[in-house]
Amino acid sequence: MLKFMAKRILDLIPTLFGISLLSFFIIRMIPGDPVLLLLGERGADPAVYEEMKKSMGLDLPIIEQYWVFLKDAFQGDLGESIISKRTVVSEFFDRFPATFELGIVALIFAVICGIPLGIVAAVKRNSFFDYFLMGGSLAGYSMPIFWWGLVLILIFSVQMGLTPVAGRMSVMFDVDTVTGFMLIDTLMPEIIKDEGFAPFFSALSHLILPAIAMGTIPLASIARMTRSSMLEVLSEDYIRTAKAKGLSVGRVIAVHALRNALIPIVTIIGLMFGSIITGAILTETIFSWPGVGKWFVASVNARDYPVIQGAVLFIATMVVIINMFVDLIYAFINPKMRS
């Protein structure tokens, strides 16, 4: 196990190196002069131009530039936004809790709906319900979520008036940031004392639609995976033995089958982190959710290159490290994987 862990962690180094190279070259591959691009019209003044070039470190040889970039990145310095003039790291961490909260709720939604649906489809194999569900999950899997989010808004916000259209919180309430997670912050004792549970429900109602939109593709893959994994397990001999012993169907499924069927399901849930980020970029843009995804798209539209560069480095590193943890956890549960 230790050997596997060491190998998996060492494997990370070249990947992280590649990611750092990629994000380093983003700003340097833009056609034209990055200094002029950042300065705009004022770049015409040679003194300002030289100063800017120096402050960006673009007067150094390229190898040295990369070295400086790496050194800064390791010290948590990813430069600052051209627009807000704040550091990329602090901008990122301001927004990260919003994305994290949305992502977690979306995943919980996907798991809570996906696993039972998959189980029922497997148990009632080839029934109408099974076909209906698998057709639905294929549609969910092909869903353009940027459209799906709009349809949800159209139905639940515009037509039925049930949920708010955008944002994280009603402007009526003033909630102090404690953890950054609205669902927790609105339950702080002083908020409940002043405003009751209204802020909590406001936060919840803002969260529901984006979480459904973001959770739809994971839901579809979890349901499909659960179904095929359950089907495989249900045909095993030990399940027949359990049934022959006279155990109830519910007990056989919940205790005997599900436990083994869960292994591949847990893996794909872990590996969904990447698609959660993809979902965040689109979902946050639709629902004006103040998270990392919306910030990233806005930076690309504003051509705020330091932010693009920093965000890519940050997000990619996070995805890679989380995938490594998923692998390690998987190897821990399933010894067959360690070789």
Partner: peptide, 24 residues
């Protein structure tokens, strides 16, 4: 293979946006 690993570690839309950010 290392290069494909790196590209695959990036969420697909993120990578596509990066390329568009560079090319316009």
């Amino acid at each position: 293979m290392r290069c494909t690993d790196i590209l695959m570690s990036l969420p697909s839309i993120l990578l596509a946006i990066v390329v568009v950010a560079i090319l316009g």
